[in-house]
Design a protein around this nucleic acid. Structure first.
Length: 786
DNA sequence: CTAGGGTTAG
């Protein structure tokens, strides 16, 4: 055997270093014992180190124990032990070894000791121990050291103590590249992309020497932010200081350009990569798929399979056509099939991605089945399912899934609560929303911009605009979405001037308005009668800022003009459009015609609508109502006949009211409520008072049934009247009544509510399909303009 | 260096 020639310790150490397998190492170990080298400390240290490398943890431990008796281990060996135990899934043993070192020996821990033991504390997740060891490091003067300091930074980030991590980092005397990189990559690990870029900027300013690893990590943060400008800047900074275009850096750049939609640059950079590996190919595949170039994505995927024989989960997830899934159902099916056969479907990242894409395709059932069949469900899978429900308007299943999560003791995170808050907002579930808010206040989840924005939206949509604004004011970081949410909140409540003021503030801040901003502002103007202001802003955005309007923007402009009664101008606007108007634009005109009872224009608009979209119910209902206004009942009936023939049912109206945190839902003429008798009594009482003071019953623009309307109004009681009556009997006098309905409020109910607010001296808040109505003392905040 | 989940408008 080769060991015959062993003569000295140095050659044994070389053999240990070069050993490739555990059996090989064991043979060497045997030779060490045979040659009486067991007492040689350096040999034993190298052997322990190598045993840990081969994950032979128990052997390493035993070797260490056997050494103690003969000759005591030095600090170096202790460090090897602490590191090895920590890295091989024994963080507690690692910590115990550290304590043994401190208490049973005369040895003093050095910077390496702290670096290693601190990583064990990270794995244990025990903050108290972490602080204790930080204290030890401070006393011994190692907290300012790059090695120990980097370990502490990483530890605090893993413990979720970002501020402490920053403090430790700021205390490091002269951070080296590794220390900077640790700070930067720790922030990336927890998705603090913006903060990561800030640290990198500081590093450049302070003249810190960065390497290709730094640049690659910062680029991954930039990709997370989808900020192309930053990506280009970092590229320039890198080139300026001569950081070579290492393959990792190029891969990072491919990723940034892909995420930002510049697929041509991504492809170009991909071509510069010297040896494309799995990672860089994955980045490129994801880029192709995201840009809609499915053909290229598949081509590269096939190349990868041919040349390497296998791919990983990242490859598959990247290939899933998330940008336009409805156009690539075949591919989706193939991927699903491929994963099923290869067993990759068991990978949580793949199943989660599939659940998400199915939900986006409205294939909730399919998503749910995949969800149920996933054996290893992470929080992400739950989040995908919950948001799938919430985004499709299925608020109840979203909330019940959230409750099931808690029953199963699966901890929701900030992503979960963001979706739940969105569901609360849609549903008007103020109590649940407040409950979630309390949980957040208690510190159960991270506060971030998504959560705050969702909270603002929730409060606004549940009627509490003041709380929404309060939250908005206290946010230190705001993005476009935050501003949009607040602007549209004002629009929703008919507070057009406040919306305009906020928009001014937004322009003064550094946030660039988006298409949604303009929509929100136009919507707010339209619902407050601010025609001039809305028009001015529209042309300001389009002419001065080169903004390209979409169909929704055109529709909003038609609505703005039309709602204010300027129908002629609305038609002129339609004719002046650079593209031909679609259903959104004509629909807006039809709606305006209905408000202002212009039958001729209504007919024109509805003809266009039927031409463009024969299947839609809403248009039929509107048209039918138009004829009713004209007292042309036979025409109205014939339109409704068409609706019935095509089996196009209209949405039944319903209203929700919360009493003591419990939701109560009423439908038209609902008798099913346990307190029905009392409710109808109350209603009769109010109706009687209304008649006494001569309130007219108005039916002409009722959006509900138009057939036999006289007869129907006798027997039909709209759901919101029932909800208000119930609110009156269940709440204390003087308190606010808050109801939510799924359709637009009708004129009759609007009058009814005004009257109730006057005689009962109550504030009544009604959220209808479009907006809020705040009734006080017989007047509505919408000024009868809705 | 690559992969899964989130907020606004309609």
């Amino acid at each position: 055997m080769i060991f015959r020639t062993i003569i000295n310790k140095n050659s044994i150490i070389t053999l240990i270093k070069n050993s490739k397998t555990l059996p090989q190492l064991n043979q060497i170990h045997a030779q060490i014992i045979l040659n009486n080298f067991s007492n040689h400390l350096i040999t034993s240290t190298k052997l322990t180190h190598k045993l840990f490398d081969f994950q032979a943890t128990n052997q390493a431990k035993n070797l260490f124990k056997s050494l103690t008796k003969t000759n005591p281990p030095d600090l170096f060996l202790y460090n090897v032990l602490i590191r090895g135990l920590s890295q091989n899934g024994c963080p507690l043993d690692s910590l115990l070894a550290y304590l043994e070192l401190r208490e049973r020996t005369l040895l003093e821990p050095d910077n390496f000791t702290y670096l290693f033991v601190v990583s064990a504390v990270s794995a244990l997740g025990c903050e108290k121990v972490g602080v204790l060891i930080h204290g030890h490091a401070l006393i011994s003067g190692y907290a300012k050291d790059c090695y120990a300091g980097s370990g502490l930074v990483d530890m605090y980030v893993n413990l979720g103590k970002i501020e402490d991590a920053y403090k430790v980092f700021d205390g490091i005397a002269e951070p080296d590249t590794v220390a900077w990189n640790t700070m930067i990559s720790s922030l990336v690990k927890i998705s603090f992309f913006h903060e990561c870029c800030v640290v990198f900027r500081d590093m450049v300013r302070k003249g810190g020497r960065f390497d290709s690893t730094t640049v690659a990590v910062v680029l991954s943060a930039v990709a997370g932010l989808k900020d192309l400008r930053k990506g280009v800047m970092i590229q320039c900074v890198g080139i300026k200081v001569g950081c070579d275009l290492h393959d990792y850096v190029l891969t990072g750049l491919v990723n940034v350009y892909s995420k930002c939609g510049d697929i041509l640059s991504a492809e170009l950079l991909f071509g510069l990569i010297k040896k494309p590996d799995l990672v860089s190919c994955n980045a490129m595949i994801a880029g192709f798929s995201l840009s809609g170039d499915i053909k290229s994505a598949i081509r590269l995927f096939k190349e990868l399979v041919c040349s390497r024989g296998r791919v990983n989960a990242s490859t598959v997830v990247g290939l899933i056509p998330v940008s336009c899934p409805f156009r690539h159902l075949d591919l989706l099916r193939s991927i699903h099939c491929f994963c099923l056969k290869s067993g990759m479907l068991l990978d949580p990242s793949i199943s989660t991605a599939l659940i998400s894409v199915y939900c986006r395709l409205n294939e909730i059932e399919l998503g749910k089945r995949l969800f149920d069949e996933s054996p290893e469900k992470g929080v992400a899978a739950w989040n995908a399912m919950i948001s799938g429900y919430a985004q499709n308007g299925l608020t109840e299943p979203a909330i019940s899934l959230f409750k099931e999560m808690q029953r199963l003791d699966i901890h929701p995170n900030s992503v979960t609560v963001t979706s739940i808050l969105s569901a609360c907002a849609q549903l008007g579930a103020l109590s649940l929303g407040k409950w979630v808010h309390d949980l957040i206040k208690k510190g159960s989840f991270d506060w971030n911009i998504y959560v705050s924005t969702a909270l603002i939206d929730m409060y606004a949509k549940c009627g509490n605009i003041a709380e929404a604004r309060e939250l908005f004011n206290t946010m230190e970081e705001k993005n476009v979405v935050t501003w949009n949410a607040m602007i549209s909140a004002y629009g929703l409540h008919g507070l057009g001037h406040e919306a305009l003021t906020l928009f001014e503030e937004m322009l003064n801040s550094k946030v660039t308005p988006s298409g949604v901003t303009l929509l929100s502002i136009l919507y707010a103007c339209s619902h407050s009668g601010l025609v001039e202001e809305g028009q001015k802003l529209y042309y300001f955005m389009v002419n001065d800022h080169g903004f390209t309007p979409s169909a929704e923007h055109y529709a909003c402009m038609v609505d703005l003009l039309g709602r204010a009664g300027q129908l002629k101008k609305a038609v002129e606007f339609l004719n002046s459009m650079p593209v031909s108007p679609g259903t959104a634009e004509w629909g807006a005109l039809l709606g305006a015609c209905m408000i202002h009872k212009n039958t001729d224009l209504a007919r024109l608009a509805s003809d266009k609508l039927f031409e463009l979209d024969p299947g839609s119910v809403g248009h039929y209902v509107l048209l039918s109502n138009i004829y009713s206004v004209d007292r042309n009942y036979s025409q109205a009936a014939s339109v409704r006949q068409t609706v019935k023939k095509q089996n196009l049912a209209k949405t039944p109206g319903c209203t929700l009211i919360e009493v003591d945190g419990q939701p109560h839902v009423f439908t038209s003429s609902d008798q099913s409520h346990p307190n029905a008798a009392a409710i109808y009594d109350k209603l009769e009482e109010i109706m009687g008072k209304m008649k006494d003071v001569g309130f007219q019953i108005e039916t002409t623009t009722a959006l509900h049934d138009v057939e036999d309307e006289e007869k129907e109004l006798m027997v039909t009681v709209h759901s919101e009247k029932l909800a208000i009556a119930y609110g009156l009997i269940t709440s204390e006098p003087g308190t606010e009544i808050r109801i939510i309905k799924n359709l637009r409020v009708c004129l009759d109910c609007h009058n009814f509510t005004k009257f109730v607010s006057k005689i009962t001296e109550r504030v009544i808040t009604v959220r209808d399909a479009n907006r809020f109505h705040h009734f006080t003392d017989g007047v509505c905040s919408c000024k009868d303009y809705w």
